[in-house]
Amino acid sequence: MTEITRRFVEANGLRVHLAEAGDGPLVLLLHGFPETSYNWRHQMAPLAAAGYHVVAPDQRGYGRTSRPERIEDYTILHLVGDVVALIEALGERQAVVVGHDWGGPVAWHTAMFRPDLVRGVVSLSSPTGPRASRPPLGLLRARLGEGFYMNYFQQPGVADPVLERDLPTTFRRIMYGLSGEAPALIPVVREGTEPMDMFPEPDRLPGWLSEDDIAAYAAEFAESGFTGPLNWYRNLDRNWALTAAFDGARITPPALFIGGDKDLNVAVAGPDMEARMRAVVPDLRDVVLLRDTGHWVAEERPAEVNAHLIDFLKSL
Rank of each mutant, 00 (worst) to 15 (best):
A49H: 02
V80C: 08
P105T: 02
G91N: 06
S125V: 12
G129P: 09
A142W: 00
G192R: 06
I174L: 14
L47D: 08
H53D: 04
G99L: 09
G103L: 02
E164H: 13
V118Y: 10
P136R: 08
G91V: 00
P105H: 06
H78Q: 14
G145E: 11
G147R: 09
R134N: 03
T65F: 05
D101Q: 10
G103D: 07
S179E: 01
R67C: 11
P156T: 09
L79F: 02
T75S: 14
Y152S: 07
S123N: 08
A111L: 05
V54Y: 09
P105W: 07
L86H: 06
V55F: 10
A111W: 01
R60D: 06
H78I: 00
V118Q: 11
L77A: 11
P135N: 10
L178E: 03
D73Q: 14
S179P: 04
F153Y: 15
M150E: 05
A142P: 00
E146R: 14
L117S: 08
Q154D: 09
A48V: 05
V98M: 05
V162C: 03
L47F: 04
P187E: 10
S133L: 11
D82P: 06
V54T: 12
L137W: 07
N151C: 13
V83G: 09
G147M: 02
V121T: 12
E92T: 01
G145V: 01
L140A: 14
L144V: 00
P187Y: 01
R165Y: 05
L140G: 02
R64E: 14
Y74G: 10
Y149L: 13
G99D: 03
V83T: 13
T128K: 01
I71H: 03
T128C: 14
Q155M: 08
V118S: 10
N151M: 06
A132P: 13
L163P: 04
V188E: 08
G129F: 02
T128Q: 09
R114H: 15
H109K: 10
Q59V: 13
V189Q: 09
S179N: 06
L79K: 12
Y74E: 10
Y74D: 10
G63Q: 07
E181C: 12
F171Q: 08
W102T: 02
D58F: 07
R143A: 15
G104D: 02
V96H: 14
D58T: 07
Y52D: 05
T75P: 06
A56V: 01
S125M: 06
R173T: 01
V55S: 08
I186Y: 04
R134W: 01
R134E: 15
D166V: 01
G51T: 01
G81L: 05
G147H: 07
L90T: 09
G81D: 11
Y176R: 09
I186K: 14
Q154K: 11
F148E: 07
S66R: 04
G157F: 02
V188S: 05
H109R: 13
I186A: 12
Q59M: 15
V162N: 04
L167N: 11
G145A: 05
R190W: 03
N151R: 12
G145P: 04
F153H: 15
Q94G: 01
G138V: 00
G120V: 00
D101P: 07
M175F: 15
A184M: 04
R114D: 03
A89M: 12
T110R: 08
G129L: 05
G120T: 00
G61K: 06
Q154S: 11
Y62Q: 04
G103W: 02
H100N: 14
E164F: 03
T169I: 04
S133N: 05
I87Y: 08
G120F: 00
G192H: 11
